[in-house]
Design a protein around this nucleic acid. Structure first.
Lengths: 204, 204
DNA sequence: GAGTTTCTGTGTCGATCAGCACAGAAATCG
DNA sequence: CGATTTCTGTGCTGATCGACACAGAAACTC
């Protein structure tokens, strides 16, 4: 691993983490190169040499976000024996993470590129794909719950996953508007109290 | 009303409506002056003379949005005799409006300035205030339902209003991601099936 | 008609955007 | 040691941002 030329003077992982925090707080388009370089402690050519472009840096930041902030959710959905406990765990984690002190408010995947210019449509679509992947993961967990008898046969697992995803995404908007963790938890209380009704709901 | 000087060559209301549609579709920051002038059919000095600035134009566009798109929701909350019917009407209206063909997807108040640079913080705060106003209106309607006996005494009307607001805001994100009106309606089905559980939920 | 007022269209302002050219600096290899 | 390779920092690029100066055009009042 001994590089041939002059070694990099900054830690790539640390710089990427700083970039992620800025993108998380300000979103993709509202973050300028100067915001990034000053937060990462490097000059712009170093950024381009190490990450390629602003867009490539953002996608790496999203991956890092998924690997760190998203890990507890993935673990809950795959490891907890009860689907209801798993979904509640995901919601509780979001309520805590979305409003945590010192950090940006709300989920980066939801908020970082909801509205952006057509020139940056690839960035928006990239996050939209990530959001759909989250819904898919929850839907598969609910299907398993049906197979295991935790949820009644015939449950519309797809609609149920969309419902809880909708609540999660709404919570990010609430957090960005200043809602406290306690306030988000009250919403989680209600979303979970509705579990049986949500599972048993028909398409009207 | 006879103006003294040269009369305006464009219809102010029509131009404002066009501006609203652009802001609705692209958000505040992603919309450039050129987007606005070409959509409104006027040159930039005419825009500044008639509306003051990009920010002032946006705020007028938000008022127009409230007066048109938001009117059915306000009417439902004030006129329908049942709070449950009123909230369901609001949700159904959102499901239809958020995913209507030919128009922008999702609610403008929710999506037009979720993430923007610090320079445009006033715009973001303006929309956040509007969002809180919507929650407040629903909370007052639920309080009335408690007074009238439709909801049990001791119902946490504030938390209940926040819950349904969260669902509405999440639906806008879903619509922006391409969810159909039918898909949003399935979420409404579940949110309304949960009515009694949501009303009776405690703070865990 | 002349004078006044207001709007329109062209052209451009300084600031800022993402991105890169270039040369000097710091490491390894022979 | 010299040669090579890679990174760093300064400073710039064309493009675009929101906003406006200016002069001509079109209505009014007298």
């Amino acid at each position: 691993m001994a590089g041939r030329g002059r070694p990099r003077a900054f830690d790539r992982d640390t710089a990427l983490r700083r970039a992620m925090e800025v993108f998380w707080k300000q979103g993709y388009e509202a973050t300028s190169m100067m915001d990034l370089t000053s937060a990462m402690g490097i000059a712009s050519p170093s950024l381009y040499a190490a990450f390629g472009s602003k867009e490539a840096l953002f996608k790496e930041a999203v991956e890092l976000y998924n690997a760190t902030e998203g890990a507890p959710m993935t673990r809950a959905l795959t490891e907890l024996p009860s689907a209801k406990d798993a979904v509640e765990s995901v919601l509780r984690h979001n309520a805590r993470a979305d409003a945590q002190e010192g950090g940006p408010s709300g989920c980066m995947i939801v908020l970082a590129a909801t509205n952006c210019s057509t020139a940056n449509a690839p960035v928006r679509d990239h996050l939209a794909t990530r959001r759909r992947a989250g819904t898919e993961m929850m839907a598969r967990r609910l299907e398993r719950a049906v197979r295991e008898g935790e949820l009644p046969a015939g449950t519309d697992t797809e609609a149920m996953a969309v419902f809880y995803t909708t609540v999660i995404q709404g919570m990010s908007v609430q957090a960005r508007d200043g809602a406290s963790s306690a306030c988000l938890d009250r919403t989680v209380d209600r979303a979970m109290a509705a579990w049986d009704a949500v599972a048993g709901a028909s398409t009207a």
